[in-house]
Computed example of a mutant assay.
Amino acid sequence: MKKFILPVVVFLTGAGGAFASTVSKTADSTMVPGHRFDPSASEVKCIEVAQCSTIEGAECTWNSEVLKEKINDTACGAPLYRVN
C-alpha cells in the first residue's frame, strides 16, 4: 500500500503545480495597459493611464472615461475591462 500512495501523492502535487502555473500565465497575458485620449496636448494623443483586462466584464474607466487599447500614438481601439 505504501508503494502505491507515495507515487500518487507525487503525481498529484506535480499536476497541481503545473495547473497553477498555467492559470497564472493566462491571467498575466490578459493584462494590457489602458489608454485614453489626451485633449490637452497640442496633438491629440492616446496615453496610458491604467492596467486593464481583455476579458469582458465591467468597463475599465479613468475619471468616467472608458479606457481602450492603443493602436498608435493618435488612435485608441477596442474598449477594455476592469481587472478582477
Rank of each mutant, 00 (worst) to 15 (best):
T22W: 00
M31I: 14
D28N: 12
A15I: 13
R82C: 02
A75E: 10
K70S: 14
A27Y: 10
G16D: 11
T61N: 07
V49I: 15
A20Q: 09
V23M: 13
V23Q: 13
V10E: 10
E69C: 05
K68H: 09
I5S: 10
T13N: 09
T30H: 15
G16A: 14
G57K: 12
I47H: 07
V10Q: 08
E65C: 05
D28A: 14
M31A: 11
W62M: 02
S64H: 09
V10C: 13
C46K: 04
G17E: 11
E69P: 08
E43Y: 00
I71N: 01
K2P: 08
G17F: 15
C46Y: 02
V83D: 01
K3I: 11
G34W: 07
G34K: 11
E65Q: 13
V83H: 13
T26L: 15
A15E: 09
R82S: 15
K70Y: 11
F11S: 09
G16F: 10
K3S: 13
A50D: 05
K70R: 15
I71F: 04
E69S: 15
E59P: 12
E48K: 12
T22R: 07
P7W: 12
F11K: 04
F11R: 04
K68V: 03
P33S: 14
K3W: 08
V9F: 08
F4E: 03
T61P: 02
V32I: 15
A20K: 12
K3T: 10
T61S: 07
G77M: 11
P33K: 04
C76A: 00
K3Q: 06
K2W: 04
G57W: 09
K68L: 01
M1L: 13
T13Y: 11
G16L: 09
S53M: 00
D73R: 01
H35N: 12
A41V: 00
F11C: 06
M31G: 08
I71R: 03
V66F: 07
C76D: 05
G57S: 09
Q51F: 03
E43C: 03
R36C: 02
L6T: 11
S29I: 04
C46E: 03
I5K: 07
A41M: 01
K45C: 02
G17N: 10
G14C: 13
V9T: 15
L12R: 10
V66H: 09
E56V: 06
P79G: 00
E59D: 12
F4W: 11
A58M: 07
P7T: 09
V44A: 05
A20W: 13
